[in-house]
Simulated scan of single mutants.
Amino acid sequence: MPEITFTKGHGTGNDFVIVADPDGQYDLSPEQVAALCDRRFGIGGDGLLRVVRSRAIDAGAAALAEEPDAEWFMDYRNADGSIAEMCGNGVRVFARYLLDTELATLEPGSTLPIGTRAGVKDVTRSETGFQADLGRWTAPAAEPLVRAKGLSVPRPGMSIDLGNPHVVVALASEEELEGLDLTVIPILDPAPEHGANVEFVVPSEPLVKDGVGRIRMRVFERGVGETLSCGTGTVAAALAVRSWAGESAPNSWRVEVPGGTLGVRMFPTEEGEHVALSGPATLVFSGTVALA
């Protein structure tokens, strides 16, 4: 069996197997990805980040058309091997890998464009690590009912699209949040065609402190299960709570997840409101592994 080099990284506990494939030589099957991400028989991770040049992957053509300087493409796979459009924690870890391996540079005040299946994402340095401009967002009209083990009755969810689909559910208390059993897949009715990540949120008390909104969140990621953090899910949760809170709600949010704390910021642009995610990105170790 051939061996490949890998690096393990994480963003607030949302962990990834990183495989460098600049010229697109690896055609990793879903089964191979799932084996690499297996926590008992593989390296272990919530997903896999393949580091490939945009020109070397079919999906990179759209990224280069949008931004010719987007040399690198984040080919993201869920832990079960399925393809996902975007990962907010993953794009920060991806940027960290590019910089630490000198595949790219990022001078103070400049941006690093990274291609994804949800468009080009601009990454900058921040006080906590990196900030990724996730671009525009939409709120589809669908409001599915969400059934989850540990909730006595179904709860309505708010749909948020950040290039990947989310459903955000408001809970009444910390006890409800802690009482969820997310080893069981939440049921959405009606079920989105391509599934969705489901975020369960509780506001802090007070909700706003020093002009910053504060919430806690747990998440079930499609194709993965419960994770310690979900970047785009964090953003979706902040957007939903801001909508529920009304016009006086702030545009800066601090979101606590089981793996740490992330920052979310909404800001206007010429093409409409964008949303940015900031937080740490850490590379843990590197090695080689036999590829089945």
Rank of each mutant, 00 (worst) to 15 (best):
E107P: 09
F94G: 00
A172H: 08
A104R: 06
G129Q: 09
L162P: 07
V123A: 14
I114L: 07
D100N: 15
W137E: 11
H166T: 10
V146S: 07
A84L: 11
P108H: 08
D122V: 10
E178P: 04
L151I: 05
G157D: 02
L177G: 01
R125M: 11
G119Q: 01
D161W: 09
T124F: 10
R136D: 14
D100Y: 11
A141W: 09
G109S: 08
R117F: 06
S159K: 07
G135R: 04
G157T: 07
A79I: 00
L112C: 05
P154K: 03
A65P: 05
E143R: 15
S54D: 05
A139N: 02
A139E: 07
G115W: 03
L112D: 03
I57G: 04
D181M: 06
L134M: 15
V120C: 04
V91F: 06
T101Q: 12
L112H: 09
S82W: 03
A148G: 08
A70G: 06
A65V: 12
L106K: 00
P154W: 03
I57D: 04
N164R: 02
R55G: 06
T116S: 15
G60W: 01
E85K: 03
I57N: 01
S54K: 00
R77V: 03
L99D: 00
L134T: 02
D75I: 02
A56L: 09
D69G: 10
